[in-house]
């Protein structure tokens, strides 16, 4: 499960509304600024940062005004501005080289972070993919460099200045297991394998194994579509469906194998290896022994 969760109902709802607000005007707007960014992590347009900010503030303010009970939970760090401020420091220290001073991204180094939201920040930083060590086919997964508190601050900073999808709250496994399985096989298994063991993609890229992923990582990955992974927005896979998928993935990977050793759960390749090395090997040894004299 997630370590800390700065956002609660309010930002989530705000985020979703913002998404639907933003989507229409996006269609067909120019995108020349981002064209050359090979490794862009930008998921959506930067059509109107100001409008976006306004929408953020408006929906946030509006929601908290309408739902006074949520205001306490709104803000677990106590002081949003100090969290944002701390986040800015971390950003300046670790991220600014590639993502620019205003989250706008740097040509050939890093994509714009405007609109990626805290979901993306959570995924990238929590799994240690960011900060990037070097430019390669795909960011490698590493132990995270930051404490949970620092990640929270960084998320607050990016969310404050860039906007985008926010972290979900509640039980992320609150979904139907079998439905999650069907959705997983339809949407995820083609890259991540039946059992989430991961798989190869073109030219050295790969879909990572889901074995180490926690619920929040899975959720934010679907929401933000990191690197080559397609985005699964909330209107494509509803939050309930995402939770069902997470429930399935996390259940499958912790269940025992009823039929003995799972041999990596990668299917016939491992089975072929076992029959040749263990099966044939043991039998060759056996007949060799039988053929010798006492």
């Amino acid at each position: 499960m997630s370590t800390t969760n700065p956002s609660s109902e309010a930002p989530l709802e705000g985020g979703r509304r913002r998404l639907s607000l933003r989507r229409r005007p996006d269609a067909g707007s120019p995108a020349s600024a981002a064209r050359a960014r090979r490794r862009s992590k930008q998921r959506r347009r930067i059509a109107n940062v100001a409008g976006l900010m306004a929408a953020l503030v408006l929906t946030g303010v509006g929601y908290s005004a309408l739902a006074p009970g949520a205001s306490a939970a709104d803000d677990p760090t106590g002081n949003p501005s100090s969290a944002v401020e701390a986040g800015r420091e971390i950003y300046t220290r670790s991220c600014i080289t590639c993502h620019g001073s205003n989250l706008q991204g740097v040509q050939d180094r890093g994509p714009s972070l405007i609109g990626v939201g805290e979901a993306s920040v959570y995924f990238q930083v929590h799994t240690g993919r960011m900060p990037l060590v070097r430019q390669e086919a795909q960011a490698a997964e590493r132990p995270t460099l930051f404490s949970d508190e620092e990640i929270d601050q960084l998320m607050a900073y990016v969310q404050e200045n860039g906007g985008g999808p926010t972290l979900p709250s509640g039980d992320l496994r609150d979904g139907d297991l079998a439905e999650g399985g069907e959705l997983f096989r339809l949407n995820c298994a083609q890259c991540h394998n039946f059992t989430g063991m991961g798989g190869a993609l073109s030219s050295g890229k790969r879909a990572p194994t889901l074995l180490d992923a926690n619920d929040m990582t899975l959720y934010t990955a679907m929401l933000s579509g990191p690197e080559n992974m397609p985005v699964f927005g909330d209107n494509q896979l509803t939050p309930d469906e995402k939770r069902a998928i997470i429930n399935y993935v996390q259940t499958i990977k912790t269940t025992a194998d009823p039929g003995g050793a799972g041999i990596g759960r990668v299917g016939p390749v491992a089975e072929g290896l076992v029959i040749w090395v263990v099966g044939m090997g043991a039998l060759l040894f056996g007949i060799f022994w039988m053929g010798t004299k006492a």
Binding site: R43, L183, G225, V231, G233, Q236
Partner: peptide, 19 residues
């Protein structure tokens, strides 16, 4: 979609794929 719901142009994010 596989659950029978129709799709509006606003439903998918850029960079997405749905079966």
């Amino acid at each position: 979609r596989d659950d029978g719901t129709p799709i509006r142009p606003g439903d998918q994010e850029p960079g997405s794929l749905a079966t």
